[in-house]
Every structure is written in structure tokens, then in C-alpha cells.
Design a protein around this nucleic acid. Structure first.
Lengths: 214, 214
DNA sequence: GTCTATAAGGCGATAGAC
DNA sequence: GTCTATCGCCTTATAGAC
């Protein structure tokens, strides 16, 4: 599960430059937004001129499309990687905890690619949105599966709305981007706390199964 | 608590036009982002020309600043309104539920102003950010207060990290923007479900106090 | 591969007619 | 109050020198 394949010392060659451009673009898109980031700024951060970028990419749209795809795949692989390291018959709670850790890890640590998607998705040109949607749906299917499995096994109460639960958990995880600071709590600590909130609640008293609203 | 002051029939006069501009701008900024929305588009949606907007506003920055301020105040007032309608000695759970409902109500129903802030904040010019930050901090203080009160009263377990809890709850609430669709679940239903997740958890079995990580 | 130079159009903002 | 017209700058993207 280590990524010791790429040795990030001084790079050279066109392929490496391409990678550099992607890295820098992801960082800037994530921070200032797609529309708020001119190609000049990306080039400047690489000590290049804007025109030179077109040797490596056809357009600005192609650039962010590639970043978005990499980002979603990063989350997917990070989550799947964590979960398949678990023993075969793990509890649903363990699976969801591993998934939360994988999600946050990709989001916060390998972060620029993933956060670009989360912060900009709604504001992008439609054709780009629909291409990214495919990968995202595939990812959310993982959660759909784990959650309904948990309910079938009786680990999640039968009255819980799994769709709202899924969207709430993923929403909370994704929003962590906006307040996470390195050096404070670790990604794993945060994931553990957040999953504990959802799984066990924060209330002191032991509770009964609450009645459904409506 | 009603806003029966403004009668929104056909409007006329400069003040009303100003309001129209704010409404349309909020909608477009929220949807396509600040940098993704040219003044020309705002004007076009009002059957006006871009230049005419400058009779009502000094600059595009002033326009969004006003929207952001209104948005944050809307959430603040919606939340405070809900909470102070409660009986004096309400449980912390009731208070937090009312707050969640107020937050979502402002976010999802009176939505364009509030969602503009949430979707665009990180990508805005620094001077604007810091002005909005003041109002937002004041709002988050409410939650800080309610949560620590709940812990002191013993309604929240002593091992719960209140900062992470607060940010996780607000994150989940705010992200609801990205998946809420009118006509499906009501705002109140969603708030009840989400607060129940955080308060009671979703796990079936009665649990003991979990040990702290680390 | 990266540069300079520039095209072609979009942007926020202003001035003055009406 | 809103229009037309326009300024000056910035944007994406291209062409050709090196």
C-alpha cells in the first residue's frame, strides 16, 4: 500500500513537466477556484510562460478534467485500499471506519486533486461535470453497499434512512477540508471521532430506538 | 418572527431594483460562482445592461459583500429565532435540533444568499473574506455555547471533542446544499434525521462509553 | 520545450446622452 | 435610472522564432 514508486527528486523531461503542471494547477484550482485561476498564474508558479502550457495540454478545460479524474480515483483507491486491508469478516463499523480514514486521507493529505473536485464541481462547465459524475457515482456505490450491508446484518438500526445517512457522512467528511489544519489532529484521529459521532452518537444516556419523524 | 413587512408584488423604484439585483446576483453567484458570473449575465437576467448596475452598486465586490453579509445574518437570525421559541428549560438536544432546523431552513429555503457564502467563501478576495469572518464567528459562538453547555449538563459525554463535533455538525448541515432537492424530504425531516445521527448514533446495540483514541 | 508576440474576445468600470 | 459607447486590462489560445 505504499507509493514508493515515484521518487520525487529533481524532475526533468516532458512527462515530468506535465506532472508538475498538474500538481501546481490542482493546488491553485483548489485554493482560488477554476475561474479564479488564470493560466498565467499557473505558469508563473512554475517559472514558465502561459503559452508554454499548451505544449502539454490542449486547453484549460482538459487540464481540470484530468485533475478531477485523478482526484476522484485517488479517493476511490485510498478507500478501497484501506478496506481490503481489513480481515475478511470485519464488522460494518470497522469497514466504515476504514473507509472514512481512506476518504479523509486522500482528501486532506494527497489533497489538491481531490479538493479541487469538491470545491469546484458545481461551478464547472456542464460537459466536464457529467464526465466526472460517472466516477463519483461509482465511488458512492461503495458506500451504498457497505451501509445497506450493515443494515441487513443488523448493525445499523432498521429505522435509519440510509440515503440521508450516506449523504450526511460524506458531507461531513468532505467539509473537513474547510477546517483541517496540519499538525493538529491527525487524519486518523479525526476519522475515528467523526465515525464515532455517527455510530455511537454523543449523548450520554443509553437511548431507546427513537421513533420515526412524520 | 414573521416577515410580513415586504409585500413582494410587482416592484418599482430604485430601492426595489436594488433588491432585485441582489436576488438575481445571489442566485447566479451561488450557482456559477463569483468569478464565474460576469456582471453582464446578472444584468441580462434583469433585462438590463451591465453598466446600469453601477447606478445601484459601486463595484462587483460590494455586491457580493452585501450578499454574503445578508446570508450570514439570515442564518443567524433563523437559528436564533427557532431557539428562542423553545420553552425556557429545554434540553440541549431540543436546542440543537431547533438550531439545526433553523440553519437548514435558512440554507435551503431562503437559500441563495446563504449558499453563496458557503460555496464561494474560500475563493473570494481576502478583504471580503475577513469582513465576512466576523459575522460568521459570531454565529459559530452560538454553537460553541450550546455544545459546552450540553457537556456541562452531562447531556453530552465528557470524552467528546466539542470542536470537532461542532465542525462536523456544521459541515454536514452545510453540505446538505449539494444534495437537497425540493419536494422530497422536508427541511425539518432532514434536520431531525441528521441530529439523531449525531445524538443517538445509528448503531443498533446499546454501547458503552468508547475509549479515547490515541 | 519554452520563448515572444499577438490575436480575438471577455471583463469590470466609467462618461455622457436621454 | 437606464441606455450606448468605450476605455484599459485581462483572458484563453495560437504562430513562429529559438
Amino acid at each position: 500500500m505504499k507509493t514508493a514508486t515515484k521518487t520525487p527528486r529533481k524532475l526533468s523531461g516532458a512527462k515530468k513537466t506535465r506532472e508538475h503542471i498538474l500538481n501546481v494547477s490542482a493546488k491553485l484550482f483548489s485554493k482560488r477556484g477554476y475561474n479564479g485561476t488564470p493560466l498565467r498564474d499557473i505558469a508563473a508558479a512554475l517559472n514558465m510562460k502561459a503559452g508554454s502550457l499548451y505544449y502539454h495540454f490542449d486547453s484549460k478545460e482538459q487540464l481540470i478534467l484530468e485533475i478531477l479524474t485523478i482526484g476522484t480515483e485517488n479517493i476511490y483507491e485510498s478507500v478501497v485500499g484501506r478496506v481490503k486491508d481489513l480481515p475478511e469478516k470485519s464488522s460494518s463499523r470497522s469497514i466504515l471506519l476504514a473507509a472514512a480514514k481512506g476518504h479523509l486521507e486522500a482528501l486532506l493529505e494527497k489533497g489538491d486533486y481531490t479538493s479541487t473536485g469538491i470545491r469546484n464541481y458545481g461551478q464547472l462547465p456542464k460537459p466536464i461535470q457529467s464526465k466526472v459524475l460517472l466516477v463519483r457515482d461509482k465511488y458512492e456505490d461503495l458506500w451504498r453497499g457497505w451501509l445497506s450491508e450493515a443494515k441487513e446484518k443488523g448493525e445499523i438500526r432498521p429505522d435509519v434512512d440510509l440515503k440521508v445517512l450516506r449523504l450526511t457522512i460524506l458531507g461531513a467528511l468532505n467539509r473537513t477540508l474547510e477546517w483541517y489544519r496540519k499538525g493538529d489532529l491527525s487524519v486518523e484521529q479525526i476519522a475515528e471521532m467523526q465515525l464515532a459521532f455517527f455510530w455511537d452518537g454523543v449523548a450520554k444516556a443509553v437511548k431507546k430506538t427513537p421513533k420515526k419523524p412524520g
